[in-house]
Design a protein around this nucleic acid. Structure first.
Lengths: 197, 197
DNA sequence: GAACTTGTGGGACACTCGTTCCAGTAGTTG
DNA sequence: CAACTACTGGAACGAGTGTCCCACAAGTTC
């Protein structure tokens, strides 16, 4: 075991983490070799030593971050599919956190989305959490159409939560999430049948 | 009437349009005084003459673009609320266009979203189409919760459409849109009741 | 016509950027 | 110890940046 390589790996990781912090704070446009190096407390050349180009650094950071998030989410989803009733509350709470406490993190995630729209090599990383959730839900025989609508709505609620004057609270989100997960009960309550739109 | 001012106003508008083209092509990060000037075919100093700073230029472009889109959309929505049946097809077609032919435009719109998440002065512009649609739907007494879910899902379908390997087609989108607009009929068809997730 | 306002556009300054070069250090292997 | 490898970090180059300055042209008003 080479001690040099071990320390190098640690520094590489520190650079990734610093990059994510910069993205959360200033957005992708705030990322430069120098800004990341400053954030990580390393000389400018370190960032070029470990990542051939700025693009490499960005891609490495965003895929790593997406992986982290996907792992983070998968447990939640299993719980939701298993026990929808308690799941609604947990999903709602998580959404509120994502547009509140972890706002910066969520913005970073959507910067990845947008970057992926222009760079094919990032697409699979951006879709990571979607794929993971879809996979987790497959054995439960969920209605695929409703499920796709549900996932789309999650993304929309987050994006719209980011541009609200203040982050939506749990009680703001709860009705919508509950409707999305158990639409039938909501519709029964209305005795309507269609949403009219 | 001052001929100088009129020509100036036209040039200002040309700069806005050039900026939007640059954003559609290269993203917000591709916008600089020089790149916009080149695109518009005007000298570099024109862009600083009409817009005090690059930030002003960006904000002016994005609010103008958002207004244009909102106007564009409002007609569609009225039709949808009036006649849901034919509306499904039109909405679906429009969505397919937005992730297909008008992909660049849609990406520009979501760059605005993300920028707005970091700059309060852009928030109202970013929410413009949401507000407009909500307003248009109000007199029809639409169930607000389902409607919010619907709008969120639209955003999500677009974003997810942007990061798909190939843009979703009309037939990909139709079932989901149809479900979102008339969930009861979809659920009846399943004879299930809940989506199970 | 002269005095003015409005728009034009070339040039330049100070700065940040990505990236490369390269001499030096610390750790590993023989 | 010597040869080698992995990493460090200062310095610099060329390119692009935002923004300001200023001489000038064109249109308007008196």
């Amino acid at each position: 075991m080479d001690g040099r390589r071990a320390r190098g790996e640690r520094r590489r990781q520190a650079i990734l983490e610093a990059t994510l912090r910069v993205i959360e704070r200033d957005g992708v446009s705030g990322v430069s070799h120098r800004s990341v190096a400053r954030e990580a407390g390393v000389p400018t050349t370190s960032t070029t030593y470990y990542f051939a180009s700025l693009d490499d650094l960005l891609i490495a950071t965003l895929t790593w971050s997406a992986d982290k998030l996907a792992d983070d989410i998968s447990g939640l989803i299993v719980k939701l599919v298993d026990a929808p009733d308690s799941g609604v509350g947990e999903i709602t709470q998580r959404l509120a956190d994502l547009v509140g406490v972890h706002r910066g993190r969520t913005m970073a995630e959507y910067e990845l989305y947008l970057l992926a729209a222009r760079r094919p090599e990032l697409k699979s990383a951006a879709r990571r959490w979607l794929d993971l959730i879809t996979e987790a839900a497959r054995p439960y025989n969920t209605d695929p159409v409703a499920f796709r609508g549900f996932l789309a709505a999650l993304d929309g609620l987050l994006m719209q939560g980011l541009i609200a004057d203040e982050p939506p609270s749990v009680s703001d989100l709860e009705p919508v999430v509950s409707y999305l997960i158990r639409p039938q009960e909501h519709l029964d309550r209305l005795r309507g049948g269609t949403m009219g739109a």
